[in-house]
């Protein structure tokens, strides 16, 4: 019984303490500013246990802004690989989701999902703080789903 209590608490905690790492993958900085705005007193995402932790090795969520270009796609992949499971990825802004207005540029890969699997797409140019918070909450749902899938496949 105590073991299952602890396990339940850990499962609950996963949703209560999403730590973010935010990566500017060639953004115009418009979206970046909005990400930081989430931390300000107006939005105060720490209410939900959200911390911008700045280090993939500690993070549960990767927030990517910007178009992703041929130079920094390896960095994006690296950061993703350094995050421990379970983890989710959010592509922020028009650029992050699809490459946005830069899509046709010669150096642009065009979207985070070309490099790593993306769980939640948050549109906007720039993306609104409310939308980011909404995206994080949706991502928490994805996190729970992923856990359920993982434990189901572990049982099989």
């Amino acid at each position: 019984m105590p073991v299952s209590v602890i396990k339940d608490f850990i499962e609950k905690s996963r949703l209560k303490s999403p730590w973010l790492v935010h990566f500017d993958c060639g953004s115009c900085n418009g979206c970046d500013i909005e990400v930081l705005a989430c931390l300000t007193p107006l939005y105060d995402v720490e209410r939900f246990g959200i911390l911008n932790i700045g280090n993939p090795k500690h993070a549960d969520m990767l927030l990517v802004t910007g178009t992703v270009n041929h130079r920094n796609k390896k960095v994006l992949k690296n950061l993703y690989d350094q995050m421990p499971h379970p983890k989710v990825v959010l592509a922020l802004g028009a650029c992050g989701t699809s490459g946005g207005v830069f899509r046709e540029a010669y150096n642009v890969v065009g979207g985070v999902d070309k490099v790593i699997p993306v769980d939640v797409y948050v549109p906007g140019c720039a993306v609104k703080p409310e939308a980011i918070i909404d995206g994080v909450v949706t991502a928490l749902g994805r996190l729970a789903e992923k856990r359920a899938e993982a434990s189901a496949s572990a049982k099989e």
Binding site: K16, P41, E46
Partner: peptide, 28 residues
């Protein structure tokens, strides 16, 4: 600290959530 910065801040047991979550993560 959050109140000092005119924010609301996390729940009181937030540190336990954090530690429990970290404990349940993949070992790397």
């Amino acid at each position: 600290t959050a109140r000092c910065q005119s924010r609301k801040g996390p729940p009181l047991i937030q540190p336990f959530y954090d530690a429990a979550k970290l404990w349940g993560k993949e070992v790397t």
